[in-house]
Nucleic acid binder design. Structure first.
Lengths: 211, 211
DNA sequence: AACCCAAATGGCAGTGACTGCCAGTTTGAC
DNA sequence: GTCAAACTGGCAGTCACTGCCATTTGGGTT
């Protein structure tokens, strides 16, 4: 199996897989924007992406996942943040909301560097999610699943109290980001001058601290 | 239209409606416990409750709603709490997480007075929700819908900042209760001696404050 | 080169949630 | 008693999603 310069293994197979995955996501986003989420069938998405409906469900478990599957790097940020914290008992005890907030801030900043391309897609997705009721309803469930998975990383070694604390941190962090996303979408829709995700995120974080 | 002693209007029609609603909820809870959520079909629930499948969907929009529809009084608590806060601008500015937490505490205490009957049902429901993945995934979406509806009450009169603040308060309050529910279920399952919902809720609230 | 296994794909038939429509029945107001 | 509105059941249909099987394709082995 050949390796890319970054050391990540990439057969032809997995490269193709990633490509079609992206293709499907693009098709779904496009169709949802044009005709609405409920009006678009999985068959249409598959046809547009050039695959069979049966194959669609080998890439995404549900219709919603073609948009909600992409978490824009925040999942990865949480994951690395948490696994680092799980290293020792002390680091887990010291693990705090501020850690994840800092990691999220880093992810947001990375958006900017990738000039428009990524950030624009994120905005389109978030707009859909907070506009369409069906997606708005499906999204929290999807995120709760992730939280569950993460919590499993901590599960074994620590006390029930610590685990509960970690859960609260993860959930509040998620909550904060999603609120920021929503406000960002609204700000962009209203053409407000300070429609900057990082600025908004910081102010939402501050608001949480003042609760 | 006759009125009950409490002043609530109860025709025969609405009384019947409430009865069948309860009947369906009971049937669903029972079947889900015995055969599992995904293994139970809506047709079975309807048959057990003595109605047609078509009628089922006139009571509950989805299969999940037959359990998730009952929010054990916490929705009502939130609603009254929030409408009271919306009365004047000052009261809305003073509205805080502590207000809702106090209201929730009251709701929990009310469980106790209704000796076992209600509390037992709540426990059964919460156990199902935190055991079954499909329900665990559906639940957050359901609650997000409520938050949306509540936020609409505040929508018109106040600044974007205040609305954002109210949203955070509502969401964190929801989060706290659901964490408490989960810990309660786990404590009951392990037969822990201090498996008291109020005690657990208080400690979760404290944990949130320390974030 | 021929060969082979694992992974990927597509088609087909089936299940089950959910909806719109229509027709019959029940309830409450006058 | 009368009539409109609400409630109900049945039927046909759509669509998300799954299991199974046959076929193709990629990549390593001899």
């Amino acid at each position: 199996m050949p390796a890319s310069p970054t050391g990540i293994a990439v057969d032809l197979r997995t490269r193709r897989r990633n490509e079609t995955r992206l293709e499907v996501q693009r098709a779904a986003l496009d169709l949802f924007e044009r005709h609405g989420f409920e009006e678009t069938t999985v068959d249409e998405i598959a046809r547009t992406a050039g695959i069979s409906p049966r194959t669609y469900f080998r890439y995404f478990a549900t219709k919603e996942e073609s948009i909600l599957g992409d978490t824009h790097g925040f999942d990865e940020a949480t994951h690395t943040c948490l696994t680092a914290a799980c290293a020792t008992e002390e680091s887990l005890a010291a693990f705090s909301l501020a850690d994840i907030e800092e990691a999220f801030r880093g992810t947001i900043i990375r958006f900017r560097r990738d000039q428009s391309e990524v950030a624009a897609t994120v905005l389109r997705i978030r707009k859909l999610v907070c506009t369409n009721p069906a997606l708005a309803k499906a999204a929290p469930g999807r995120y709760a699943e992730n939280t569950r998975r993460w919590l499993a990383l901590v599960n074994e070694t620590c006390s029930a109290t610590t685990r509960s604390r970690v859960r609260m941190i993860l959930e509040v962090a998620q909550l904060t980001i999603h609120c920021a996303f929503d406000e960002w979408v609204n700000a962009c829709a209203s053409d407000l001058p300070d429609a900057d995700l990082l600025t908004i995120y910081d102010s939402v974080c501050a608001r949480v601290r003042d609760l």
